[in-house]
């Protein structure tokens, strides 16, 4: 991959994979290129095509993927936090097509909120609640956006990078430093 080390893999401008990745690059991305001419396309190392969209285009992209391109199976929603970039969160939606046995990843960058896709995929219900709980991203239009993993009265969103790892300090020098600051990167 040509992404330089030290930057998150979730950087913008996804470089395309070299010829070694099967199937051939144009074939993999061609259907998306026709359907989403303005979106940024790319392929990650796992061979999964990814489509980067703006927040406003999310619902329509997902609807077209489901209805026109056959990605009828919902797999996952998750987020990656990088506070050094603005907007800090990148949401990743993963869908699957039963016809071609392939995944597609839709990326959206957001600082705060995105529209909810529960109308399109009811399975996203709990996944969006989890992202809300652990990252604090608000999903507009979600039927019941409340905490799912943490207790209801928990304050803070644990998976954010500025949230400390917590726990208690242990009497070994490495872990004392780690658990005090929550950041092991040196």
């Amino acid at each position: 991959m040509t992404t330089p080390p030290g930057t998150l893999g979730a950087a913008p401008a996804e470089p395309v994979v070299e010829e070694a990745a099967p199937p051939a690059l144009p074939a993999l991305l061609a259907p998306f290129g026709d359907a989403f001419p303005v979106a940024e396309l790319g392929v990650t190392q796992d061979g999964i095509a990814s489509i980067r969209v703006e927040r406003d285009g999310l619902l329509s992209t997902i609807r077209r993927l489901r209805d026109e391109l056959g990605y009828i199976r919902f797999i996952d929603v998750t987020a990656v936090d990088d506070p050094s970039v603005d907007p800090r969160f990148e949401l990743q939606y993963l869908l699957y097509t039963m016809a071609e046995h392939r995944w597609v990843r839709v990326r959206v960058e957001t600082g705060e909120s995105v529209p909810s896709i529960t109308d399109l995929f009811p399975a996203a219900n709990w996944y969006e609640r989890e992202v809300f709980d652990l990252f604090g991203i608000h999903f507009e239009g979600h039927p019941k956006l409340v905490r799912i993993m943490m207790p209801d009265d928990w304050v803070g969103h644990p998976l954010r990078k500025d949230y400390p790892i917590g726990g208690e300090p242990v009497d070994f020098t490495v872990t004392r430093a780690v658990y005090a600051t929550g950041d092991r990167r040196g």
Partner: peptide, 12 residues
């Protein structure tokens, strides 16, 4: 003692 999980979620 909290085991492998020394973090915010597990009671130590």
């Amino acid at each position: 003692c909290g085991g492998v999980f020394n973090n915010y979620a597990v009671v130590q």
